[in-house]
Design a protein around this nucleic acid. Structure first.
Length: 193
DNA sequence: ATAGAGATTGCCT
DNA sequence: GGCAATCTCTATA
């Protein structure tokens, strides 16, 4: 596996997830690139989730078979199955043993557009290809088999290509949750990259 | 054992 | 805007 060509000096920095909580890391992920299978998406929407102090988090009640990678080493993927249908991808943060992760909620395709369209037949508009956590995973072909894999070692890569740095972001409550709405832990890119 | 909610999506009216 | 699809986990018995 290798990082797709055409994105400048691709660089992975797994070290920056160690010891940093999800709500600190989350805005930094905006503008970064997530790649798998030769397909790439520039991240435009993220949400942070904590552990025992965050009632909206999968980690709130401790580790289970499903969420165990959320408690594992940072810099890896936490991929979970939701509503019996969809996969969602997170970047594990914090320290091993505690739950902390950033849900990748949306992005724009920057590489492999034709293949991404084939994988997202329901998307009628370009913007509907990856504007949701389940859609983004379907577009990139991310599923449970990739849960726990290292984002600095592939086959799924997270890196800063230098083209999407420091996008302006809007900060809002998280989507689709009924607890913990007081925290403004969702960040959305407000400028087209 | 069973019921209900959930970090969603797409198709229906 | 309503709702079905149908996996994982929690609460209750």
């Amino acid at each position: 596996m290798s990082i797709p060509a055409g994105h400048g000096a691709a660089e992975t920095r797994p070290g920056e997830f160690y010891g940093r909580q999800a709500h600190e890391v989350a805005p930094d992920l905006l503008g970064m690139v997530l790649s798998h299978d030769g397909l790439s998406v520039r991240i435009s929407e993220v949400e942070a989730y904590g552990g025992e102090d965050d009632p909206a988090s999968h980690g709130y009640r401790g580790p289970t078979r499903r969420n165990r990678s959320m408690f594992g080493p940072p810099g890896r993927l936490y991929v979970y199955f939701i509503y019996g249908m969809h996969w969602c991808a997170n970047v594990v943060c914090g320290s091993e043993g505690e739950a902390s992760a950033v849900l990748i909620r949306g992005g724009t395709a920057v590489c492999g557009l034709d293949e991404i369209r084939r994988r997202r037949p329901a998307a009628r508009r370009e913007r509907d290809l990856c504007n949701g956590p389940g859609k983004l995973c379907a577009a990139l072909g991310i599923d449970g088999s990739l849960d726990g894999t290292d984002l600095g070692a592939g086959p799924v890569w997270l890196y800063d290509d230098g083209y999407g740095a420091r996008p302006t972001a809007e900060r809002t409550p998280r989507i689709g949750i009924s607890h913990g709405r007081d925290r403004l832990w969702r960040w959305v890119t407000t400028v087209e990259l």
